[in-house]
């Protein structure tokens, strides 16, 4: 890059069009500039993903290495026929993703519309509303567990004062409340993400459109459904897709609040994989589960984009 011969007179005149003019001579500078990034991404993202597919065909157990070796599709056969956790975990994953993404979208939209109005101290309110976005899943787990706790938690006290419940409940270890409890805790952290992206999109809608609607006599509801919503369509589709993938894979809260219990009632597929990876030792089987979850996500993404007719050109703007 610092070679003095590079800085000739022709280059000074048009520093960015060297490649254009001398087609035969390849300019290596941009390749050198992206090389480190390409290396790190390929070596530590793409290569590992590749090995997951490879290991899924193996028995690869750190604690019992004598049985390690190629076993073909045995892992997959076991997942679909013998595994008692796999199928229920799919259903729980569906429940988790649909409730999270659906509720985050609805409440995130409400918050975005709210914060898009003009009022005093708007900046302060916005910062306050977005703060949970910066809080880690583990921190959120601690904070909510301090509230849910049967003995020292504040929720039992509050709810008993209002009269919703009559005696202390163990919110996180009761099968009937565990799932709902982690859904609420994750919503606390997830709504700001939707609110931020939707607010950004709201701000890009030209004001003239609203003025025109007003002149035409459209009320608040009509304005929302005929102007705001269509204008936000692409943002919503892309955010929902990204968020679905993200929540599908998100285990921080489940891992720390319930660990997948009680009675596996909060074990999503990713939670299952994570506990296999952290506690179990058969990486071959874990890899096979990972491949299955990847396939599910891939199919979902393709179908989702087809069904919603996401406009590519506009996305690539």
């Amino acid at each position: 890059m610092s070679a003095p011969s590079n800085v000739n007179t022709a280059r000074r005149a048009h520093p960015f069009e060297v490649h254009e003019k001398k087609r035969k001579k390849i300019n290596w500078v941009p390749y050198l500039m992206i090389a480190p990034s390409v290396f790190i991404v390929v070596a530590f993202l793409f290569y590992p993903i590749g090995t997951v597919f490879y290991y899924s065909l193996f028995n690869y157990d750190l604690s019992a290495p004598y049985y390690n070796g190629f076993i073909g599709l045995e892992n997959f056969k076991e997942i679909f026929t013998a595994d008692k956790t796999f199928l229920p975990s799919l259903l729980i994953t569906l429940k988790w993703v649909v409730s999270q993404v659906g509720l985050q979208l609805v409440f995130g939209m409400a918050v975005a519309l709210l914060l898009n109005q003009t009022f005093k101290f708007r900046g302060v309110f916005r910062a306050a509303a977005f703060i949970p976005w910066a809080i880690s899943g583990v921190l959120a787990s601690v904070m909510w567990s301090l509230m849910y706790n049967e003995h020292m938690g504040v929720l039992n006290d509050l709810f008993m004062r209002i009269g919703i419940i009559s005696e202390s409940k163990a919110w996180l270890s009761d099968v009937s409340t565990a799932f709902g409890s982690i859904v609420v805790a994750e919503l606390w952290r997830g709504i700001p993400f939707f609110a931020i992206t939707l607010l950004a999109a709201l701000q890009s809608i030209p004001n003239e459109m609203y003025e025109a609607a007003k002149v035409d006599g459209a009320g608040r509801r009509k304005t929302f459904f005929f102007i705001t919503l269509p204008q936000l369509k692409n943002t919503i589709i892309l955010t929902v897709l990204l968020r679905t993938i993200w929540e599908f894979n998100n285990v921080d809260l489940i891992f720390n609040l319930t660990g997948g219990g009680p009675a596996e009632s909060t074990t999503t597929l990713t939670m299952y994989i994570a506990s296999q990876a952290v506690h179990g030792s058969n990486f071959g089987y874990g890899s096979a589960l990972t491949v299955v979850s990847f396939a599910i996500l891939l199919i979902f993404a393709v179908v989702f984009l087809k069904v919603t007719k996401y406009e590519k050109e506009e996305a690539e703007r």
Partner: peptide, 14 residues
């Protein structure tokens, strides 16, 4: 679009 959870096992091995 790479699920982060997909990385835990292979990265551990690497």
């Amino acid at each position: 679009f790479i699920p982060r959870a997909m990385l835990i096992i292979p990265l551990f091995i690497i």
